[in-house]
C-alpha cells in the first residue's frame, strides 16, 4: 500500500531468512536443517511478493512461483537423500557424515553447549534390605541396611548420559 508497509514486509522477510539461517547453522538433524532451508525460501518469497505489490506488476509473483517450484523439487530430492542416508548409518545426525569433508579442514570444534544432566533427576532406588548373598542375617539388622543404603548412594553414577 505504501512504502512503510513494504519496508516492514522486507524487514520481516529478512527476519524469517535470518531465523532459517540460524536454524540451518545450528541444527544437526538432517530433516530440521532442510526445514530451515524452506523457511529461508519463504522469507525470500515474502520479499518478492512485497516488491510485486509495490511495483504493481507480476514479476515478483512469477519469481515467487518459481521459488515455490524449486522448493518442491528440493523437498522431493532432499527427502530421497535423507531416506537413503538414514538407511546407511541409521542416524539423522549431520556429524555422522563429517568424513566427507576435506582432510585439510580442521576438525570442527565440539558444540559449546554440552548436554549435562545436572538438572535432571534420576530415580534413586530405595534400599530394599539386605544383600541376599550376605547370609546369615546379622543381629544388628537396621544398622546393616543403613550401611548398604549409603553404599548404594555412593555408587550412584555421576553424569551418566544416554545417547
Amino acid at each position: 500500500m505504501n512504502d512503510i508497509l513494504t519496508q516492514n514486509l522486507l524487514v520481516f522477510g529478512g527476519l524469517l531468512f535470518v531465523l532459517g539461517m540460524v536454524g540451518f547453522l545450528t541444527r544437526r538433524s538432517l530433516i530440521l536443517m532442510f526445514l530451515s532451508l524452506e523457511m529461508m525460501l519463504s522469507g525470500v518469497s515474502i520479499n518478492l511478493i512485497a516488491f510485486s505489490r509495490h511495483h504493481q506488476n507480476f514479476q515478483g509473483q512469477v519469481l515467487a512461483i518459481m521459488v515455490l517450484t524449486i522448493a518442491a523439487c528440493e523437498a522431493a530430492i532432499a527427502l530421497a537423500l535423507v531416506v537413503s542416508l538414514f538407511r546407511r548409518k541409521a542416524t539423522l545426525d549431520i556429524k555422522a557424515w563429517d568424513d566427507l569433508s576435506e582432510t585439510i579442514v580442521p576438525k570442527e570444534l565440539e558444540a559449546s553447549v554440552s548436554m549435562e544432566h545436572d538438572e535432571q533427576e534420576f530415580p534413586k532406588l530405595t534400599p530394599s534390605g539386605l544383600d541376599p548373598m550376605e547370609l546369615p542375617v546379622p543381629a544388628n539388622f537396621d544398622a546393616v541396611t543403613g550401611e548398604i543404603a549409603e553404599r548404594i548412594n555412593a555408587r550412584t553414577p555421576e553424569g551418566v548420559t544416554h545417547a
Binding site: 547453522l25 542416524t91 539423522l92 570442527e108 565440539e110 559449546s112 553447549v113
Partner: peptide
C-alpha cells in the same frame, strides 16, 4: 544431535 547444537 537434537540437544547438542553446532555453536548456537
Amino acid at each position: 544431535y537434537d540437544i547438542q547444537l553446532t555453536n548456537p
